[in-house]
Design a protein around this nucleic acid. Structure first.
Lengths: 149, 149
DNA sequence: TACATTTTGATTGTGCACAACTTAATTGGT
DNA sequence: ACCAATTAAGTTGTGCACAATCAAAATGTA
């Protein structure tokens, strides 16, 4: 039956995503972070302050996802939010001292995760290349479908 | 900074998964199905009846996800659930006539999706191979982490 | 300047995913 | 035959993701 073929590619991506999420869940457990929260913190550990819009652009997430996520990070004392003085529509997100300090405890996560994938450098590069092209092509196709309706 | 490198692989998988989900959302819109619901229906279009456990094994989902999902499919009139006579713990899931009929309307989805990925056959094969090995390795690593704690 | 448009973020509602727990049915060991 | 352990589903609670909608601020143009 035809319905199996396509499915696998997409299902495999879906399954891989959930598997990675599960590993992150285990690795980030004692940091008190989820994977999406960890992603947001990584952006902040690099540059700060950042507006919600910038964060959304970096992570490809909208405010419907980020607003509650940032609220939880704020409740955990890792982050502080304030309206920009220059543009009152924007909200600037900053690290608290606790949030900044957490980065040292997160340092080992990347290595452990990379090791867990079991992929070597060149395989990784090819894989990521395919992933990026896939994502771009699929995003484009989704736009085309929406336009057609 | 070290925190970027690993991130990309995982983030790329995450992003690809969400992109595919978005395309499915568009393609399945007029069928009234979400992507996970579509996956469940595909299993049922192949073999029937199926227990919740079997469905969970096929989709790698637990009852906490499947129970409400199946309840929605039942509410939509696509599926019927009944306790197994042989083993009262099990619930058998069957298609209704409407549910069975829906498969014909879903036939075009795979082709459209495969085309949207923009991948050729051999690239697809290599990609899926990497995905499978990645998932297996990561699942294994997650188990190891849990055992160590 | 006045007003329509755009931008930014928040909110609401729906659905997926998983951990932890509960209940009922079955199985296995004694 | 009895009781402990296991198994199958369901339930609850938390969090992510996104569509749709809204309010407030900024921008552009008549």
């Amino acid at each position: 039956m035809k319905l199996l073929l396509d499915n696998q590619v997409c299902f495999d991506v879906h399954a891989a995503s959930r598997a990675l999420d599960g590993l992150y869940r285990a690795l980030l457990r004692d940091l008190g972070l989820t994977y999406p929260q960890y992603l947001a913190m990584m952006v902040l550990w690099e540059r700060e302050p950042v507006t919600v819009k910038e964060l959304g652009a970096a992570l490809r997430l909208d405010s419907g996802t980020l607003s509650p996520l940032l609220k939880r990070l704020e409740a955990a004392g890792l982050v502080r939010r304030e309206r920009s003085a220059a543009d009152e529509r924007s909200v600037l997100v900053r690290l608290t001292p606790d949030g900044a300090a957490l980065s040292s405890r997160a340092e080992q996560v990347p290595d452990r995760l990379l090791a867990a994938t079991g992929l070597d450098v060149e395989e990784l590069a090819a894989f990521r290349g395919t992933l990026r092209r896939l994502t771009a092509a699929v995003d484009e196709a989704a736009l085309a479908v929406r336009r057609a309706e």
